[in-house]
C-alpha cells in the first residue's frame, strides 16, 4: 500500500512569500539559533521544527524557506526532512498519537493496544480520523520501555490522568507506580481530548508546545558566529599542568622519581632537589615531557627531597608535591 502522496496534499495557496510572512514571528528564535553554531547550516533541523510548530506539518514550500534561512540548497533541506521521521510531510490531525511497537513495548502488549486504538478511532495506523482530531501512527522505540507500551500524544508521553495539552509539558508517567498505558487510559485520554476539542475550536496551530522547548534567547552564542558576543577561550584558561602523583624510591645509589604530567603539552620537566628541608632547591635533572621518570644519584645515607616543575611551551607549572627519599 502506498502510504501517502505528499505531492497531492501540498497547499496550492501557499507561496514562499506567505511562508516568510508567517515565519516572521520566529525571527528572534532564528537569530538566536544562528548565534549558536559556527556555521549557519547547522540550524536547519531546529528551523524545520519551528516550521512544523507553525504549520503542524512541513509543506514543501516551507522546506524552501528553511533552506533559505539555513543557507543550504532546497534539495538538501528536502533530503533532511525525508531522513528524519519526526518531520511530517502530510497534514496530521490535531493530536498525533504515536504508539511504539518495538521489542519491549511488543512484550508489554503494544499490538493489542494498537488494535484497540484502531477500533476505537475507526482508522488504521497512518491515518487521520474524519473529524481531523486524531492521527495514529506506529513508531519505533520512544525510550518509554519502562512504562510500556510507549504512547505519546503530541509531544509528551501520557500519564494516567488526561489533562489539557499545551503549556508546560508533564512527565507524570515517571512518577506513578506501575503505570502502563492500558486501553482504559487511552480511552480516557481520547474522550477528554474530544471533549476539549468540542469546547474549544482548533487553535489554528497544530503544535501547542514550543518546538524548541523554551529556547534561551539572548545567549552569548558561539565565538565568531553571526551576532554572537562570546569570546574564544584564552589558551591559558587553566593552570599549566604540573607533575602530579609524584613518587620516589631509592634504588641503590640512586633515587628513582616517577610522576604523571600531560604528555601532549609538557615540553620538559625539571627535577629539583632540596637537602635542607625545602629551604632551597637545585635542579638536578631535565627530562622530556613524555618520560615521566628520572634517576638521580643519591649516595647512601644522604636524605633528600625532590620536586618536579613541568614546563609547557610558553609557561611553567607550579612545583609538584614534594617527595622525600630517606638516606
Amino acid at each position: 500500500m502506498i502510504a501517502h502522496h505528499p505531492a497531492s496534499v501540498q497547499p496550492v495557496d501557499l507561496d514562499l512569500a506567505q511562508v516568510r510572512a508567517r515565519m516572521e514571528r520566529y525571527a528572534p528564535q532564528v537569530a538566536e539559533l544562528v548565534r549558536r553554531y559556527p556555521v549557519r547550516r547547522a540550524i536547519l533541523l531546529q528551523v524545520l521544527h519551528l516550521v512544523q510548530q507553525e504549520f503542524g506539518w512541513v509543506p514543501r514550500v516551507a522546506i524552501r524557506w528553511a533552506a533559505e534561512v539555513s543557507g543550504v540548497s532546497p534539495v538538501h533541506a528536502f533530503s533532511v526532512v525525508e531522513f528524519y521521521t519526526m518531520y511530517r510531510q502530510v497534514p496530521m490531525g490535531r493530536h498525533l498519537i504515536q504508539v511504539c511497537h518495538t521489542m519491549c513495548c511488543h512484550i508489554q502488549g503494544s499490538e493489542q493496544l494498537i488494535a484497540h486504538l484502531e477500533r476505537r478511532l475507526g482508522i488504521r495506523c497512518g491515518e487521520t480520523t474524519a473529524d481531523g482530531l486524531f492521527s495514529l501512527v506506529r513508531v519505533e522505540c520512544l525510550a518509554l520501555c519502562g512504562t510500556g507500551p510507549g504512547v505519546m500524544i503530541d509531544d509528551q508521553a501520557i500519564g494516567p490522568t488526561p489533562h489539557p495539552l499545551g503549556g508546560e509539558l508533564r512527565e507524570e508517567h515517571l512518577a506513578v507506580p506501575n503505570f502502563h498505558p492500558t486501553p482504559a487510559v487511552l480511552d480516557a485520554w481520547i474522550d477528554f481530548l474530544r471533549e476539549q476539542a468540542a469546547r474549544a475550536p482548533h487553535p489554528g496551530r497544530h503544535h501547542e508546545h514550543d518546538a524548541l522547548g523554551g529556547l534561551i534567547i539572548g545567549s552569548a552564542g558561539h565565538p565568531g558566529a553571526e551576532g554572537a558576543s562570546a569570546q574564544p577561550l584564552p589558551a591559558d584558561y587553566a593552570p599549566a599542568c604540573p607533575a602530579f602523583k609524584v613518587a620516589a624510591r631509592r634504588d641503590g645509589e640512586q633515587a628513582v622519581i616517577t610522576w604523571v604530567n600531560d604528555p601532549l603539552l609538557t615540553v620538559r620537566c625539571t627535577v629539583e632537589r632540596s637537602q635542607d628541608r625545602g629551604a632551597s632547591w637545585q635542579p638536578v635533572a631535565e627530562v622530556g615531557g613524555k618520560e615521566q621518570r628520572a634517576c638521580v644519584a643519591q649516595p647512601a645515607g644522604v636524605a633528600a627531597a625532590y620536586r618536579i616543575i613541568a614546563h609547557e611551551k610558553t609557561r611553567s607549572a607550579r612545583p609538584s608535591a614534594v617527595v622525600e627519599v630517606p638516606g
Binding site: 514543501r60 524552501r64 540548497s73 538538501h76 525525508e82
Partner: peptide, 22 residues
C-alpha cells in the same frame, strides 16, 4: 557546485531525487 540532487529517505527506502518538482 550547484546542489540539485540528494538522497532522500533512509534504509532501503533511500532514493535519489531533486527537490520535488524542480
Amino acid at each position: 557546485k550547484d546542489s540539485q540532487l540528494a538522497i532522500a529517505g533512509r534504509g532501503d527506502h533511500a532514493y535519489i531525487t531533486t527537490f520535488p518538482g524542480q
